[in-house]
Design a protein around this nucleic acid. Structure first.
Lengths: 213, 213
DNA sequence: GGGAATGCATCTGTATGCAGATCGAGGAAA
DNA sequence: TTTCCTCGATCTGCATACAGATGCATTCCC
């Protein structure tokens, strides 16, 4: 077994190219080319493609090349809505379950992000934003919900890259985070859920601009 | 290509054996035996197993046989909780979105199920129950939520087989369905969601009896 | 007798070859 | 010129072959 790359590594690598936009929706994934690129035979490439298909990142049809998933407008909005609902669930659960340490870390990290907003550091804020939401997902203390929300987020990622380029988006996002944090700190699950839902829904509206099918 | 079975057919067949309990959690899935059983070579079997792994129905480790997923007690309860939350979302959305025809069909089919309860027809009621919940999932008119809830349900199915054997479970389930239907018919999303959550949570409690890890 | 080492049977992971399907270019007919 | 057909290049789906990993039972040493 002198494989250049394992199936798991290929899955990661290809998934990464898709979610980072290196590969565009609709792009074909030719088994032979991928095999050459990763220095393996077609067999492991096929297995990787099948797994990516199950993850929803590529679409497969019999005797056709796999293509990077290009979800329809309708399905895309259903994913955004689902994302908002999942965030609501996470925030609500988190408000009742986060440990003292988790709450403190959420608060501190949120406060620190104010500086990024003031400096207009979009890249850094985007990274922080991922961290903020991940804190919520973890704070819910429900592994399966975490899996569902992570999976949905991964599939949405190709469609929300330009999000924070919108004017005023940073400070708006910050104040929405503020609402969520406040509700969580006082243990108000319903309010936290509502704020989280609103936060993600707004992102959704903005994103539809980029989501022409 | 004189394959006896396609990969897709194998995925379905094996998934079916898992969710119907023909294969128990923990059971090994030997590639060679499966290849012999389905009259194909190991290559398509491997692809099927990888897809089942991505679906969460089997677990795979390097150089080990795939085994039917046997989730830990903690993860199992997180799945039941997630299921309840998803049902809540579906019911809430369905209350506001179901078409007139869908509402009528839900009501009629629910009423008809009373007969199954009276006769103690457990098998038939279980089938009806799947139908009832599927109506909710569809009624939410959100394809991605449908996908998430279906996937979670599939992964839970090996752990809820004996559910309706519990004494008095049928009539209790019926009256809980009644609550959901009533709320949906009058368009009360919050009440429908609450009732659906309660319904599934109760199932969860009952099921933990069978879910020793 | 108990525990560690070893060899064999078995299984997984990947490469390669072949059959069938698909797609597109080029030519023939209208 | 347009449309349809054909043929070949290309690609997918699967079978087979082989190398490496694993597990178990036997054996050896203490």
């Amino acid at each position: 077994m002198r494989a250049g790359t394992t199936v798991e590594q290929m899955v990661k690598a290809i998934a990464d190219m898709i979610v980072t936009g290196t590969m565009q929706p609709g792009e074909k994934l030719d088994e032979f080319s991928l095999a050459a690129r990763f220095q393996v035979s077609r067999t492991p490439v096929r297995e990787a493609l099948r797994e990516l298909g199950a993850m929803g990142l590529v679409e497969r049809q019999p005797n056709r090349s796999a293509v990077v998933t290009n979800v329809s407008g309708g399905y895309l909005s259903s994913m955004f809505e689902a994302m908002a609902e999942l965030e609501r669930v996470c925030a609500r659960l988190a408000a009742g379950r986060m440990t003292v340490a988790e709450r403190r870390a959420l608060e501190l990290s949120h406060h620190a992000s104010m500086r990024l907003v003031r400096d207009g550091a979009e890249e850094d804020y985007a990274a922080y934003n991922v961290e903020f939401h991940t804190r919520l997902y973890n704070g819910a203390h429900n592994d399966h919900v975490f899996e569902l929300v992570t999976q949905t987020r991964a599939r949405l990622s190709p469609f929300r890259r330009a999000q924070f380029r919108l004017p005023g988006r940073l400070s708006k996002s910050y104040s929405e985070h503020q609402d969520i944090v406040t509700a969580i700190l006082r243990g108000d699950g319903e309010a936290a859920g509502k704020a989280a839902y609103a936060h993600v829904s707004i992102v959704s509206d903005a994103s539809t601009v980029f989501a022409a099918d």
